[in-house]
């Protein structure tokens, strides 16, 4: 009996170690598994790119990271993407490990703006080509970033604001009351979207009914918030605005359950499949484009140019703009 247990334990441990080695080989393709594999060691001298993603598991992260992998493969690079878990210290540590291991280029997706200076400083000190992705870095170091691929978040907010004004022009209402669901408190994306939207709707007579309600990009939280807003404001609502497709999905479930579909307009931001479906069904008035796939591809393209010594723009802006039901075929959906 005891021998059997020992054997089971040994088996589990062997499996674990094998798994780790197996994963490594799977990720490296045909790369040799021994030694730190700088580009000189890899077959054909393929250069290695390391990416630390602060929002690895976020819905927006999946297509973005897929694009990074696809573009890297297309351009002949080996890519490793790890989860930075929105922890700046962890990301700094991951980059140090990657640099020690001889990676040739780096991609940095920061978790928040305030914690970016020490990492930007470190990345510059390595002398390696690197790009910042998605989250705009802190103002104090923005000039020190060699290349930043990010949406103009304030412009996305302005687009949301323009759509709100346009909606009320097409659907006149005396009250212009809006229920507004935001992402995460303090995140640059949430704050900048609201900032851009407020810039545009100022003086338009549009009235945001609720105090800030943060669903933290979580559909279930958005559903709860929407239920509360419907209970509190009900028929007073003329328009619902959600800061992303996931939160729209949650809010729409609540609207559907309370049988409010069609009684007011809905606007959101994002290119989720649910957004496409609801645009086509007419339940969603419009969305604002922010394509994670394009953003991911651009990051590797820019890095490739930097590796080859070519000039790159300091800030490569991920295109944005309104999407209506008629335009859905012109965009990618995730």
């Amino acid at each position: 009996m005891r021998t059997k247990k020992t054997l089971v334990l040994l088996l589990v441990l062997i499996l674990t170690v094998s798994l780790i080695s197996g994963c490594a080989n799977q990720q490296k393709g045909d790369a040799p598994s021994a030694g730190s594999a700088s580009s000189e060691d890899t077959p054909g001298g393929a250069k290695r790119i390391f990416m630390s993603s602060a929002y690895y598991t976020a819905p927006y992260g999946a297509p973005l990271q897929e694009a990074v992998q696809d573009k890297a493969k297309e351009l002949g690079y080996e890519i490793t993407i790890v989860d930075g878990e929105a922890n700046a210290d962890k990301q700094l540590s991951q980059f140090k490990t990657a640099v020690a291991d001889g990676y040739d280029a780096l991609i940095y997706w920061p978790g928040d703006q305030a914690s970016t200076p020490p990492i930007v400083e470190y990345l510059n000190s390595t002398g390696l080509p690197w790009v910042a992705l998605n989250t705009v870095v802190d103002d104090s170091v923005i000039d020190k970033v060699p290349c930043m691929i990010a949406s103009d978040e304030v412009e996305i907010g302005r687009n949301v604001g323009r759509l709100m004004i346009e909606y009320f022009e097409k659907n006149p209402s005396d009250t212009k009351n809006v229920a507004y669901i935001e992402g995460s408190p303090g995140s640059s994306y949430t704050e900048n979207l609201t900032k851009g939207m407020n810039e545009v709707i100022k003086g338009s007579g549009i009235n945001i009914l609720n105090e800030p309600q943060y669903a933290e990009y979580d559909p279930s939280k958005a559903m709860t918030i929407m239920e509360d807003l419907l209970t509190k404001f009900g028929d007073q609502i003329d328009l619902v605005v959600a800061q992303d497709g996931g939160m729209f999905q949650g809010a729409f479930s609540a609207i559907e359950a309370a049988e409010y579909v069609g009684k007011f307009g809905i606007i959101c931001q994002g290119q989720d499949l649910i957004v496409k479906e609801k645009l086509l069904s007419g339940d969603l008035y419009a969305s604002v484009a922010q394509d994670p796939y394009t953003e991911g591809s651009l990051s590797v393209e820019m890095l490739d140019k930097m590796i080859k010594g070519e000039e790159v723009e300091h800030w490569v802006v991920n295109p944005t703009g309104p999407i209506y039901a008629d335009d859905v075929d012109n965009y990618s959906w995730f």
Binding site: V12, L19, Q27, A31
Partner: peptide
């Protein structure tokens, strides 16, 4: 990270290691 294991697989391996140690 040094073995170039991607983020998703890292989470899985971490879980397996934890279970193995606790089970042991």
């Amino acid at each position: 990270t040094l073995l170039s294991v991607g983020g998703s697989m890292q989470k899985f391996v971490r879980g397996i290691v934890l279970i193995s140690v606790i089970m042991f």
